[in-house]
Computed example of a mutant assay.
Amino acid sequence: MTSTPLWTFDDVEHRFHEAAATSCRLPPARVAGYVTLWPEIARQSWEGYADDLTVLRIPATPAAVDRLAETTQWLQWLSVEQRKLVWARARYVPWRVIAAQLGVPRQTAWRRWRHALTLIVVQLNGRPPRIAETIPQRHAT
């Protein structure tokens, strides 16, 4: 019998960082309506770098987009304030800025973030973690 691996706090944190990075790699949203039928201008390599509007993007892989969709669904288990906190931290917003936005000390913001990610870990694992599982057992000799 194979058991499913349990999610850890670090796994969930890493997944949110990856989701934030993937969301930056998605193409920009465009307003539907106006379309041009003119072909794209084929520029030389030396011409493209002088343009301020040229942004070199590495597109997101389909697997990364699937993980992004799954990760954003986890946010439904949190309150709106917790969602904003988790997503801001996933984008590496400094604790000082997050604490100022919440109007709390940095340590309190950090504790709220840990609590929010712990709620997600509990939802993913389907049961709360036991303290005895986290403490290494000593073997009698």
Rank of each mutant, 00 (worst) to 15 (best):
Q44F: 11
R15E: 09
C24F: 14
F9N: 05
A90R: 04
A88R: 03
V35C: 02
T72A: 01
R83V: 11
D66E: 15
Y92S: 14
T134L: 15
T22L: 04
G33Y: 10
V55S: 11
G48N: 05
G103Q: 04
E18V: 05
T61D: 10
L75H: 02
T2K: 09
E47I: 02
L75W: 03
A32G: 11
G48Y: 10
L124P: 05
Q82V: 02
T54C: 10
R67Q: 12
D66N: 07
P62I: 00
D66L: 09
T71Y: 00
A60N: 00
V55L: 12
Y49K: 08
R91M: 11
A109Y: 06
A64S: 09
Q101T: 07
A29P: 10
R106A: 13
Y34K: 07
P27Y: 00
R130Q: 15
Y34P: 01
I58D: 08
T54F: 15
A29H: 14
R127L: 06
P59L: 03
Q123Y: 03
R57A: 09
R127T: 09
H14I: 05
V65H: 07
A42R: 13
Y92T: 09
L68K: 02
Q101H: 13
H139N: 07
Q44K: 12
R106N: 12
A69I: 13
V121M: 00
V86C: 02
A64F: 01
R91C: 09
T72Q: 06
S3Q: 11
L119K: 14
I120Q: 07
V65T: 12
G33A: 08
R89Y: 04
L26H: 01
R57I: 02
N125R: 10
A109V: 09
T8I: 00
E13A: 14
Q137K: 09
P128Y: 10
L119Q: 15
T8H: 05
R111Q: 12
R83T: 02
L37D: 07
E13V: 03
I58M: 12
D52L: 07
A29M: 13
W7Y: 06
A100G: 02
I98N: 01
A21F: 01
D11V: 06
R112M: 14
S3H: 11
H14T: 14
T36M: 06
Q44V: 11
Q76R: 10
A88G: 03
Y92G: 03
R114L: 14
P5C: 02
L124T: 08
Y49H: 11
R114V: 06
T61E: 12
Q137R: 13
P105D: 06
T36A: 07
E47R: 08
R112V: 06
R25K: 11
H17K: 12
G48E: 15
H17A: 08
G126Y: 04
W38F: 13
F16V: 01
